[in-house]
Write a protein that binds this DNA or RNA. Sequence first.
DNA 1: GACCAGGCACATC
DNA 2: GATGTGCATGGT
Length: 211
Amino acid sequence: MKVDLISLYEKLYKNFGPQHWWPGESAFEVMVGAILTQNTNWQNVEKAINNLKKRKLLSFKKMHSLPEGRLAVLIRPAGYYNIKAKRLKNFLRYLAKNYSGDLAKMRQKDWNILRQELLSVNGIGPETADSILLYGLHKPVFVIDAYTKRILSRHKFINRRADYYQTQDLFMQNLKKDVKLFNEYHALLVKLAKDFCWKSKPRCQVCPANS
DNA sequence: GACCAGGCACATC
DNA sequence: GATGTGCATGGT
């Protein structure tokens, strides 16, 4: 199994090259993006982030003092905007309470403690928490998403009904805990899934319509 | 017009 | 503990 996961990575890397994830200029931007992208196309998330950037509101301080209603209007293009505004506010309150909004201070803590903390914030689930840890704080946590699960079950690495943690364990137990590797691997799996989506390859088994 | 997109919480059984 | 549902915009 060890060999298979590694050789899969090497094949992907050779084919697609580095993916340069996460597209964000700061740790804070990555974290905001992680919440906004919940079940949402990244293009829509970028529109929402740009709305915040244009108004120079994409910072902890500004967003923390921004009324939830105003925030909701600005992130509208990302969809589910009312609930996401609420989730962002929950997250900002958590940052304020525990770290005074200082991400460098947050990063000093061990990742499994941070993970528990993040999961206790209403609106942050396993994938969002892990994205924040890996892509925002550079902690060695493997991020699982719908694409990853589909690809792995299709290629018989996991059972079709495996849950988030079973899937994550597969990577965490069999790969060396390397931030760069985890970052690139997850991004490459998403790239693979997208490139072989059902619109271009009607019989692709990775796609939801055919799986 | 239908279907999908880098989830999550909550209700119900 | 499994399964269903609401949340919503924008691209194809």
